[in-house]
Design a protein around this nucleic acid. Structure first.
Length: 420
RNA sequence: GUGGGUGUAGCUCAGCUGGUUAGAGCGCCAGGUUGUGGCCCUGGAGGCCGCGGGUUCAAGUCCCGUCACUCACCCCA
């Protein structure tokens, strides 16, 4: 029944079995790896004051202008569902003492953008991200990229590309913008409508316009590093050198600038193949974010987990990530056996085993069907005969072999089935 | 926000130019085996044909609106 009242809001979905297995596997592997990289988790609220996002992401960006879920709370304050997590994390860090400015934090959770849904784009989606706080440091930038690659490899994702560029020092922004404007001034008329607007508001964004004629004009320009200070160029070269040293293949992409205002210095993007139009699975960069009177500096990235999962499914790598514990299904014939099985099931669970049984007292055949559907590795069958003899039938569902055991024998066999 | 495609059983879909009781496969339940799953056979349950309006003697089918899904643009993860 596809009736509206049973559906979640547009672009949002209920995550449930069997897909949830992939979510849990991805999350578990990620947390383990982030821990190995000495990051700790932070969970910030999903709802923040609107200014937290508007100031840091940038008033002219599409995210702030048309993609945020913004509304007034009961006290008349403007609040917003987070469209990304970096701003909230920085809000937290800015409120802490100076030692927090050296933190290594990661987050994993839902983000909200009121866009039109399409392949690889939901209104509620999930990001995994990490931040290394602190002033510009090429090693930190490089480590972020290393970590992302490691995550993708850990998940078993193949065929992705890492593209990288620099936006220069914060102080360079004004001069780079001005230089770009000068360089483009003869060809403004050749630019698309959006870019003519960007020419005034944010000339850097013209660089990654997908429009062909804009691309032709941009290709005539020297790379933007040309307009930057030598300090910015040296910093970027150092990042590239370290990445090479760490054996991370990246492609320089002089037109990559990314869409959020807070980025400075190194920016990068990871794209996957076979993802449709929305092929960016991860993006990141160094940033300077104003919060209240302070500015917080750091470097970080965010990965779109829905897109990662689409890519994993496409490459048939999703099933390899999921490991389910073997399950035992208890089968009873007769009410006496049923009740004894309830007791047995509980004691097996206390011993760390994963098990279940039909609670409705259906036919043995129906119980077996359920066991099969539950993909139980083994079943324990108990009926009148076994009750009389004080035994249990243990059946291996894969081979179909079964044996009759007494209690000590059953416990011994069953204990051997636990992974621990 | 703009444009294209699609809404029929739990799922995937068929339903020719409008015509009587709306179908298939899978899944589910039961039986074939009153103590054994998967494979096979038989039967059964399950449909406001997304929703609202209109045209017509008659609408799942045509028209309008609306909602949702989906793909793309814009942009982003």
């Amino acid at each position: 029944m596809a009736t509206d009242q049973y559906q979640p809001l547009q672009g949002m979905s209920d995550l449930i079995a069997p897909e949830i297995d992939l979510w849990q596997a991805l999350e578990a592997r990620s947390r383990e790896l982030l821990d190995r990289y000495a990051f700790t988790e932070i969970r910030t609220p999903v709802l923040e004051r609107t200014s937290v996002f508007a100031r840091s992401i940038g008033d002219t960006t599409d995210i702030v202008q048309k993609e945020m879920y913004t509304f007034e709370d009961r006290g008349g304050r403007s609040v917003t569902l987070r469209p990304e997590a970096t701003a909230g994390v920085m809000r937290h860090v800015a409120g802490q003492g100076p030692e927090a400015l050296e933190s290594r934090l990661y987050y994993l959770g839902p983000m909200f953008r009121a866009e039109r849904p399409q392949a690889g784009r939901k209104r509620q989606f999930h990001q995994l991200g990490a931040e290394i706080l602190g002033p510009p440091n090429a090693a930190a930038d490089a480590e972020c990229i290393v970590l992302q690659k490691h995550l993708l490899d850990e998940w078993g994702l193949k065929d992705y590309r890492i593209r990288i560029n620099t936006r220069g020092l914060p102080e360079d922004r004004r001069s780079v913008g001005a230089a770009l404007r000068d360089a483009l001034s003869p060809s403004v008329s050749a630019l698309c409508e959006d870019c003519r607007r960007r020419y005034e508001t944010n000339p850097l964004r013209i660089l990654d316009c997908k429009n062909e004629s804009c691309g032709r004009e941009v290709d005539r320009l020297p790379p933007i590093t040309h307009f930057m200070s030598s300090e910015a160029r040296d910093y970027f070269q150092e990042v590239l050198r370290l990445l090479k040293r760490l054996d991370i293949p990246v492609e320089e992409q002089p037109r990559l600038v990314r869409g959020l205002d807070y980025y400075v210095h190194t920016v990068w993007e990871i794209t996957g193949t076979a993802l449709g139009a929305q092929d960016a699975i991860s993006g990141g960069g160094r940033y300077v974010i104003p919060i209240g009177e302070k500015e917080v500096e750091g470097v970080g990235f965010a990965m779109g987990l829905e897109r990662v999962m689409v890519a994993l499914r496409e490459q048939k790598a999703d099933r390899k990530l999921i490991s389910k514990r073997p399950k035992i299904w208890l089968i009873s014939a007769g009410t006496a056996a049923f009740e004894e099985n309830l007791v047995l099931m509980q004691s097996l669970r206390m011993r760390g085993l994963c098990c279940g049984m039909d609670l409705q007292g259906r036919s043995l055949k129906a119980q077996m069907r359920t066991a099969n559907r539950q993909s139980a590795a083994h079943v324990i069958i108990r009926g009148e005969q076994e009750m009389e003899r004080g035994t249990f039938v243990l059946k291996d569902m894969a081979t179909g072999e079964q044996e009759e055991l007494d209690m000590p024998g059953l416990m011994e066999r069953v204990q051997a089935l636990t992974p621990f």
